[in-house]
Each structure stands twice: as C-alpha cells, then as structure tokens.
C-alpha cells in the first residue's frame, strides 16, 4: 500500500464527500436522539401511570422495538410503508431514506430511552415526593419543580452514551440508500476497487465523532459530581 494510493483516493473532493456523509450520520443521530427522547419521555410517563392500559401500551412498545433487530425495523418502515399506503389508501409515495431512516432509529431509540427516563425518575429519593406532598404541591408541580430537575442531571451521562450508540446505528441506513458516512465509503470502495483506504478513513471519522462526544460527556459528568 503506497502513500500515492492513499493520496489518489483521499482527494479533497472525496474527503469532502465523506465528511458530508459524516454530517448526515451526525444529523440523523441528533434527530433520532431527540425524536427518541420525546417518545421515551411519553412512554416512561405511561409506564409509571396508574392506568393499566397505558402501562400495557408502553410495555408492548418497548418489547417490540427492543426485541427485534433495528435493521429489520428500518427495512420494514422503508420498504413496507409505501406498500401499506398503496394497499389501504391507494396512494404511492417515494420514501426519503434519510427521513424514514431517522424516524425508524428514533422509534427504536425511544424504546431504550423509555427505560433510561423511567430509571432516573424512579431513582429520585421518595422523600422528595413526600416533602412535596407536605408543602402542598400537585403531582405535576412535583414532577416539574422537584423530580425532573434532579432526574435530568442523572440522565445526562447515559443520554450522551445513547447519542454515541445512535451515531454508529445510523450506519444501518446505508442499506436503504441514505448516503451517510458508511455508504459514502462504500461508494468509494467500488469506484477505486480498494476497501482498505475508504473504510479506514470512515472508521477514523466515526472515532473522531464518538471520542469527542464521550470526552464532553466525561467533562459534564465531572462537573455534575462536583456540584453534588
């Protein structure tokens, strides 16, 4: 493997192509993380609710999306979606792999984030609920002013960890034609008949993203530990 080969493959244009792919990976991960946290918060609230039916819905959601492969979920949503709308609504559309992909990952991540939110909310000392009861706060006031602010601090480290997982998971969208980082590397492997250089370059780019984020997480964790 010569340096010349690396120079030939990793031209500024090709690097730009891959960095653009990395940008998509990051954007998909961010959308999925926040979409997932909305779903996760709702499902966590349902899971802790007094209503049996809400708890059941939340449990089924978590079981289905944690119990099947994410790749399968992505393919089902991307490939089966248009077929379903054609069959039932007589309406055909061309799904956008980035949007459908991000939605699929968000739904999957939401199932994991449900447990995350539930565990940090329930980890808040029950004395906090009791104190809130005695000073006259309602359930929602207690949640808003007492429980969630404390849960929020504990959720930050695992939440950032989930972000890292999602950056890697976004590579699954290469299978449905989203040109994210892995797919951009794949395209280059077939253009140059070389696997080593594009894939290694992609690995380095993934690492730059994930290591940066986990360093930020460590800093945040340290600061939270200090203020406790």
């Amino acid at each position: 493997m010569s340096l010349a080969l690396i120079e030939k493959i990793l031209t500024p244009e090709n690097l730009e192509f891959m960095i653009k792919g990395a940008g998509y990976s990051l954007a998909i991960a961010i959308c999925a993380l926040f979409g997932g946290s909305v779903l996760g918060l709702l499902a966590a609230a349902a899971k802790m609710s007094h209503f049996k039916i809400l708890r059941a819905i939340s449990n089924i959601y978590c079981e289905i999306f944690r119990g099947t492969p994410m790749l399968l979920q992505i393919m089902l949503l991307y490939l089966a979606g248009p077929v379903l709308t054609k069959t039932f609504l007589d309406f055909v559309y061309t799904p956008n792999p980035y949007i459908i992909g991000a939605v699929a990952i968000a739904i999957n991540s939401g199932a994991y984030e449900t447990e995350l939110f539930r565990s940090v909310i329930q980890a808040v000392d029950k004395g906090q609920w009791e104190a809130s009861h005695t000073i006259g706060l309602t359930y929602f006031q207690t949640m808003r002013h007492v429980i969630l602010p404390q849960a929020f601090r504990r959720v930050i480290p695992p939440f950032i960890n989930e972000f890292i997982v999602l950056i890697k998971d976004s590579s699954l969208l290469s299978t449905i034609g989203a040109i994210e980082l892995l797919r951009s590397a794949q395209i280059m492997t077939s253009n140059y008949y070389n696997f080593f250089v594009p894939y290694t370059a992609a690995a380095v780019m993934y690492l730059v993203m994930t290591v940066t984020i986990s360093n930020v997480a460590r800093g945040v964790e340290r600061r939270l530990a200090e203020s406790d």
Partner: peptide
C-alpha cells in the same frame, strides 16, 4: 389530590430533612 388545602395546614419535618438538593 383534592385535600391539598387541608394538608397544607400541617407542616411536616422529616428525620432525613428531605430538602430539595437542586
């Protein structure tokens, strides 16, 4: 839930304080 005004007529002090740490 509907008894808050009545409950608030009684202040409560806990063994473990239960102050809001944040």
């Amino acid at each position: 839930k509907d008894q808050i005004p009545l409950i608030m007529r009684m202040g409560f002090v806990f063994q473990h304080f239960n102050l809001f740490p944040h």
